[in-house]
Design a protein around this nucleic acid. Sequence first.
DNA 1: CTCCAGGTTGCGT
DNA 2: ACGCAACATGGA
Length: 317
Amino acid sequence: MNNSLSYTVSPDGRELYLPLPEPFSFTQNVSYLARAAGECMHRVVDGRIRKAIPVDGETEGDSSLSVVVEVFEEQPGRLSVRFLAPEEPPSELVRDAVALYTREWFDLDTDLAPFYHMASKDPLLELPIRTHHGLRTIGIPDLFEALCWGIIGQQINLPFAYTLKRRFVERYGRSLEYNGECYWLFPSPKDIAALPVEELTELKMTTKKSEYLIGVAGLVSSGQLTKEKLLGAGDLKQAEKMLVSIRGIGPWTANYVLMRCLRTPSAFPIDDVGLHNAIKHVLGIDRKPTKEEIVKLSANWTGWQSYATFYLWRLLY
DNA sequence: CTCCAGGTTGCGT
DNA sequence: ACGCAACATGGA
């Protein structure tokens, strides 16, 4: 995307302005981010989103350039990103990295018009696109974070998944401080790759999950698994194959990561329990749909399965 | 106590 | 290829 760094800077150099696509509802996206009380990777204060954003330095493993920002929409059609910490104004390198992260985070480069056109005539999607008009698939731009969140969330309820992530992040991550509060950066794959399994099981991860996390951390820290390699895989099926070959990553996690991190529009975690419950809810039936029914119901979603899933999930949380 | 939860693995047919 | 138990823990 050649305009992916397009933004303007305030006179004092502490604010970035990103043009917003249409449709985009800041309120909808904030509500999504505010919905989970247990989330430890960001915070919503007075309708503004605060978060530590990782910025890699010139030298490998240098995370000292990371910043805390506040995201809001002061002027319609324009997203403001204000640097809260550290004190020094951000360099151009940092501004570029934060602008890119924010574009990926809020999926600012996707034209939703075709999706809304399709969804307005879809029996399952008509309701969620009305209720959450302007919602974007909120991304997890960091590959290791996306993989970990997928693995941590496997087969457990959401509140517990947030608890596990918080323990993990607060034990192995780094935090920046602003206004007396901690803003956490996700642990680095290098640090996690070096851990013995017993340390993670102490956090009440299962033994298997602990093994998966450490294994994936090794692949990411060694550069064997990168966003570039997944994006360069060719198509969804190839990327999915690459991910599923990794121990601890099955079809659900692969598609979840492709959806939230690589932004593959046709990624589709079709076995997802939440998706099944959302469909059950929209159809007003007292049982979960079968896989065959879901295949039929999603027949017109081609190329937008990822957005369809995200909007349906949103109905439940 | 039971059932379920934003699954995956490994072994059986 | 498909089915199914085991995994381990917390929430309802």
